[in-house]
Amino acid sequence: MELTVVEGDITTQDVDAVVNAANRGMRGGGGVDGAIHRAGGRAVLEDCIARFPHGLATGEAGWTTAGALPARWVIHVVGPNYGRGERDRSLLVSCYARALAVADELGARSVAFPLVSAGVYAWPLDDAVAVAVDTLRSTPTRVAEARLVAFGREMYDVLVAASRA
């Protein structure tokens, strides 16, 4: 699998699937979750409600339609909220590994990932980057391209440096 890094907006990525850093309820919210729900439109929310009436547990992944997004699917993951005391690193690792497993089930060959739990969930940036890069590189998958999407130049530079290490 090729690991790539781009600077941009995850909602505009022309890939088979985009990964959403969702909350447990999967009903939209702030950050990446809100952006994906806004750009994907009502179809994403309706599919979340139908497929996951009780949401998802932390560390788990599930898919829905991508609605109006360029991607075909949204793979929703629920990262641990470090700021609220959820500090089990294996749950963050699970988000990336489970997202790849769901992508394999769907037959997705290209998947765009945000940096899960690094925003409002306050996971320490250096470790969030290490988990993303290490897990994407070490998880067996049929995905051909895992694309880390950096929102802003500073994050792009951090992700590029980590992906080259």
Rank of each mutant, 00 (worst) to 15 (best):
E2A: 04
L3Y: 01
L3D: 02
V5A: 00
G8F: 01
I10N: 00
D14W: 10
V15S: 09
V15K: 10
A17C: 13
V19W: 08
R24P: 04
R27I: 04
G29P: 01
G30V: 11
R38K: 15
A39Y: 12
G40K: 00
E46H: 09
R51A: 05
F52H: 07
G55Y: 08
T58I: 02
E60P: 14
W63Y: 10
G67K: 12
G67D: 08
L69C: 07
L69V: 13
V74G: 08
V74A: 02
G79Q: 07
N81T: 09
N81H: 09
G85F: 02
D88R: 11
R89L: 15
R89C: 11
S94F: 07
A99E: 05
A99K: 08
D104H: 03
E105G: 13
G107A: 00
A112C: 04
A112M: 09
A112F: 02
A112H: 10
V116D: 14
V116P: 14
S117D: 13
G119N: 09
V120T: 12
V120Q: 10
W123P: 13
D126W: 02
A128K: 03
V129S: 03
V133K: 00
V133Q: 00
V133F: 00
R137A: 03
P140T: 11
T141G: 07
V143C: 05
V143M: 04
V149R: 06
V149I: 06
G152R: 01
R153T: 08
R153Y: 00
D157H: 14
D157I: 07
V158T: 15
V160H: 00
V160A: 04
V160P: 07
A162E: 10
R164T: 09
